[in-house]
Design a protein around this nucleic acid. Structure first.
Length: 485
RNA sequence: GGCCCCGUCGUCUAGCGGCCUAGGACUCUGGCUUCUCAAGUCAGCUACGAGGGUUCGAAUCCCUUCGGGGCUACCA
């Protein structure tokens, strides 16, 4: 029987979760769900000066918002607690000691300056840079001398001669000659562990079966495998590796703050739906294999396999994300759309949240559902229905103060006044017969003027429906007000 | 510099030796529709980095080359 799949997402807390992180998390999650395995979240804080609780809370909140539910990790718990590497220091120390005892590792007393000098020399001589093995086989006397000099050692892993070959699930067989994989540091002079030690130990102890991570870690894999060997793990029990290609920015460099918005929080504020973000990100470096592009979270789980992941990097394209977000918004039911909309409307103080307001919003939403690409556009589009002190946009004022516009508005006012059944049909009928047929105006001219008077803008939801929702009194008042400009 | 990874339209991709005069989506351009803006719809633009092989036949296999990226830390 094959082992139950366990996939881990293990970011180092260097900032808010960003697009690149999330793409990795999404693939990790999707693979876990696809295989019926578990999705584990671990924090790699061996370097950072302590993770804050806020960071962890924010990260978990982001994952939850995206719909990437965790099976194991900080806050949710699990059988492999704790999930912060900073809380597992004694475990790493124990293994480091074991490696020392087994002679797989050794104390290295070289100073930073000496190492730097070695590298300089290697660079000058044009040979592979890396630790030269000075402290590999120190005698007791040499060690004593170093101690007398007050030198503090690091613990270094001994890389045996030969090489490491492993099968990357995305790239195929990858080989590294150990000539180019020097002895590496496991534990710093101050006793703290390095990433290479901590990941390997944790992945084994937490029974991770698949390591899906960024391509930048590809060349650290031989070191990780070396630790497995030292731990006595059988080769058949090594996790399988799959190195995901990068997500690049417009400038063909790894996506960063410089080349676009990368913080997931930014997308959330802008009104991107989590489904849209996941759908788009899923398409970066992966595809279902056919021409299908609009996929739900459920479909991503069903269809996702590592084999279909690309080996080449993908560029992040905001336009495509926007297009997908628009599609997802249009696919929402009105109640779902309403739920998503309300926070944006209250945040912009367009509404306070009364039942009457919400009822009106719900009626207006169908008018704008296919006109927006981000939820943050909603307040601007519906504002005219709620403002108490109405004002025409500065740029549009001059478009309705000319004589032609004034006569349109006057006529509109006159035709609208007698309407008793205030509906978009009756409004349209009255306006068409008078402004278009009688006055012989082009619809875009005639209705354009009314639109500005009613909504204050040249861009708005459909005019007659908007007037119906605004109500007769308010509509007539606005036209009168426009006439007075 | 060394090691490793990568290379199909502007972008994301389909393609796994004949279905490819290379398909889809986004973007862009033009048309239709139209009360604005959208949405919808139709059409168009544009790609196998280059050069050698292998083969009856190559985007698909091999080699070289060029280009891009990563790593080369007591970062992850």
């Amino acid at each position: 029987m094959s082992k139950k799949v366990k996939v881990r997402f293990a970011p180092s807390p260097t900032g808010d979760l960003h697009v690149g992180n999330i793409r990795t998390a999404l693939f990790d999650w999707a693979y876990a769900r696809h295989t019926g395995g578990t999705f584990l979240f671990r924090i790699e804080d061996t370097d950072t000066t302590r993770v804050t609780d806020e960071y962890i809370a924010a990260a978990i909140d982001t994952l939850k918002w995206l719909g990437l539910h965790l099976d194991e990790g900080p806050e949710v718990g699990g059988e492999n607690c704790p999930y912060l590497q900073s809380q597992r220091l004694d475990i790493y120390a124990m293994w480091a000691q074991k490696f020392l005892d087994q002679k797989d590792a050794y104390h290295c007393y070289c100073s930073a300056e000496e190492l730097e000098a070695t590298r300089e020399r290697q660079r000058a001589a044009n040979v592979a840079p890396g630790y030269d093995g000075t402290c590999r086989d120190l005698s007791a006397d040499q060690i004593a001398a170093h101690k007398d000099n007050g030198r503090i050692p690091v613990i270094r892993m001994r890389m045996p001669d030969g090489g490491t070959t492993f099968v990357d699930q995305i790239r195929g067989e990858v080989s590294f000659d150990h000539k180019f994989v020097p002895d590496f540091v496991l534990v710093r002079g101050d006793g703290s562990p390095l990433y290479t030690l901590a990941v390997a130990v944790d992945d084994v102890l937490m029974k991770v079966t698949h390591v899906l991570r960024g391509e930048d870690l590809l060349s650290s894999t031989p070191r990780q495998i070396r630790v497995y060997q030292a731990m006595g793990v059988a080769e058949a029990d090594y996790p399988l590796f799959a190195h995901l290609p990068f997500v690049m920015g417009q400038d063909n460099a790894k996506l960063s703050k410089r080349n676009g918005e990368v913080s997931i929080a930014w997308y959330r504020d802008k009104g991107f739906l989590p489904e849209a973000i996941c759908n788009y990100l899923a398409l970066l470096g992966w595809s279902p294999g056919d021409d299908r592009e609009n996929v739900s979270m459920k479909e991503i789980c069903e269809l996702f396999t590592v084999e279909k992941v690309h080996s080449s990097p993908a560029r992040f394209d905001m336009k495509k994300l926007e297009a997908i977000n628009g599609d997802k918004i249009r696919a929402l039911t009105i109640d779902e759309f309403l739920t998503w909309s309300l926070p944006f409307l209250t945040k912009e103080k367009v509404i306070t949240g009364t039942d009457a307001e919400i009822a009106l919003v719900k009626k207006a939403l169908p008018l704008i559902q296919e006109r927006i690409i981000m939820l943050s556009e909603i307040p601007q589009m519906l504002k005219f229905l709620f403002v108490t002190k109405f004002e025409v946009e500065a740029d549009s004022v001059s478009k309705i103060t000319d004589d032609a516009s004034k006569s349109v508005l006057k006529r509109a006012l006159k035709e609208l006044e007698p309407i008793t059944q205030w509906s978009h049909d009756s409004i349209e009928g009255a306006l068409r017969s008078s402004l278009i047929e009688d006055m012989g105006l082009k619809p875009r001219i005639a209705f354009g003027a009314v639109r500005i008077a009613i909504t204050g803008s040249t861009i708005s939801p459909p005019l007659f429906e908007s007037m119906e929702l605004l109500g007769k009194d308010a509509s007539l008042a606005r036209i009168s007000q426009a006439l007075a400009l």
